[in-house]
């Protein structure tokens, strides 16, 4: 199983923000959830992958090819949904169809039309008449309609109601089953990722904090809930971060089983990605 996307030591410096040695890989046919708080560097990383930002250092390979050298070839096989970047809103889905026919060799008008029907989007209405959720659906339909091998989706479910979100997530899953497509999906809505992502990559303050399989993360990691007295008995090496709440301590541990065998603390909860993010960002060491 080869890697569809490989990022090695990606660095990009701005006046007030920096991407520091970003490295991760996305294997073929997998979904990677890319999580992190606002401003953590998710969109900047995605922009570097797509060459929307320049003057970064490091290596980005897509389908085994350098993303800058083989820009045109690579982008034929990438579908994107970018946060707040799309076609001008005076255009209609029909205009997008006509445009994309002349851009992608594999553009599939029938598929695009099917998605429009599925999402109840009128093809002759200007984008500006669409709600935020409808626009997002149109962006998704546009990203999917040329049979991409890699989907890069920056907040694709933001603005969608729970029903539409479930619908979109289901579509992503069915694409994976049919087309051997791979997906890099950044999202704040981490519950979606828990259900579909094979890998989770967590970025914080411009640095990759972890990149692991979702199963490993959700099965191994845990939150120990204990009293102050119990917390003081825990060796610093045995936890990652902790947070003091009104009544107890919440302690993030990397391996629930190992922890349980070492300490006699009864309550170790399963972790959610939300818990992980909050503790990693707001917790103390």
């Amino acid at each position: 199983m080869g890697n569809i996307l490989e990022i090695k030591n990606l660095c990009k410096k701005y006046d007030n923000f920096e991407l520091k040695n970003i490295s991760f890989t996305l294997p073929k046919g997998m979904i990677m959830g890319f999580i992190g708080e606002n401003g953590a560097g998710k969109t900047t990383t995605i922009k570097a992958i797509l060459d929307i930002i320049k003057s970064y250092t490091g290596e980005i390979k897509i389908f085994g090819l350098d993303n800058r050298k083989y820009d045109e070839k690579i982008k034929e096989d990438i579908g994107v949904v970018l946060d707040d970047m799309f076609f001008p809103e005076i255009l209609t889905p029909d205009d997008i169809n006509n445009t994309m026919k002349g851009i992608y060799k594999n553009w599939d008008s029938n598929m695009f039309s099917d998605y429009l029907k599925k999402f109840s989007l009128l093809s002759n209405k200007q984008i500006k008449t669409f709600s935020k959720g409808m626009r997002k659906k149109l962006e998704i339909a546009t990203a999917l309609s040329h049979h991409p091998k890699l989907l890069i989706l920056d907040e694709p479910t933001s603005g969608l109601d729970p029903v539409a979100r479930a619908e979109v997530i289901q579509i992503f899953q069915s694409i994976l089953e049919k087309d051997e497509c791979s997906i890099l999906l950044s999202s704040h809505i981490t519950t979606d990722l828990e259900h579909i992502a094979d890998y989770i990559t967590f970025i914080n303050n411009g640095e990759i904090v972890l990149s692991k399989t979702t199963n490993e993360l959700l099965d191994k990691y845990g939150i120990v809930k204990c009293t102050e007295k119990e917390f003081k008995e825990i060796d610093k090496k045995d936890y990652i971060k902790y947070k003091k709440t009104k009544y107890e301590y919440e302690v993030l541990v990397e391996n629930k089983k190992d922890f349980k065998s070492k300490y006699n603390i009864a309550v170790i909860d399963k972790i959610t990605l939300d818990d992980l993010m909050v503790l990693m960002i707001k917790g103390e060491e």
């Binding site: 922009k47 797509l50 045109e72 707040d84 970047m85 799309f86 809103e89 851009i103």
Partner: peptide, 12 residues
């Protein structure tokens, strides 16, 4: 609508 950024994600 930030088309200029979006269009860079398209081939060439």
């Amino acid at each position: 609508n930030k088309w200029d950024a979006y269009c860079i994600s398209l081939p060439n």
